[in-house]
């Protein structure tokens, strides 16, 4: 326990940190089992668990609106859309068992090296101490988000709505059966 707590900068064990660790273990386990499953359907269900765990992380970070948007958009819409795509293609498909090839080793080594470099950089950087109070007024994170979004970021907000419309039209055109 000591080694773990010194790796993470030696913090105090409170309810929030315990919740953080439980959620972190849940998310990482779900992500790893996602890659281990053979059935495509099980993979899609396990990524729903990852999205729910991430929503819990957002609650811990005081981003209430984003947590609910995460549940609605990711755990709801995107997971269901993936399930639709699986059902519309070959839903009994099984990711084939294959020997660890050269490419797989290279990809694994690359990902591990990238992770090691990032973890080392995170470890050696002096971060500001975690403040107990969020930078926005307590219990008012949605109000603060709305104020910033609709004053400073109105133009990007409108552009995003245009982007969503374009993506919707593009998806319909792409998926339409050709005459």
């Amino acid at each position: 326990m000591n080694a773990v707590s010194s790796w993470f900068g030696g913090f105090i064990w409170t309810g929030q940190t315990v919740a953080f660790f439980l959620l972190a273990v849940l998310v990482v386990l779900a992500a790893v089992t996602l890659l281990q499953f053979r059935k495509v359907m099980h993979m899609a269900l396990s990524i729903g668990l990852v999205f729910l765990g991430m929503a819990g992380m957002y609650v811990l970070l005081g981003a209430d609106f984003l947590a609910f948007a995460q549940i609605l958009i990711y755990a709801g819409a995107i997971t269901i859309l993936m399930l639709f795509a699986i059902m519309l293609t070959r839903h009994d498909e099984v990711e084939e068992e294959e020997r660890a090839g050269f490419r797989q080793w290279i990809a694994g080594l690359g990902a591990a090296a990238l992770g090691a470099v990032m973890l080392w950089a995170i470890r050696t950087t002096a971060w500001p101490p975690a403040s107990a109070q969020p930078p926005w007024p307590a219990q008012k994170s949605v109000n603060a988000l709305a104020e910033t979004l609709f004053t400073g970021y109105v133009v990007p907000f409108e552009l995003v709505s245009v982007l969503l419309t374009v993506a919707l039209v593009g998806a319909v055109i792409l998926a339409r059966k050709e005459e």
Binding site: G9, T17, V27, W127
Partner: peptide, 11 residues
């Protein structure tokens, strides 16, 4: 509150 390093490490 967990320090920012733990969140970044998880990410």
């Amino acid at each position: 509150m967990a320090p920012i390093g733990s969140f970044l490490a998880l990410a």
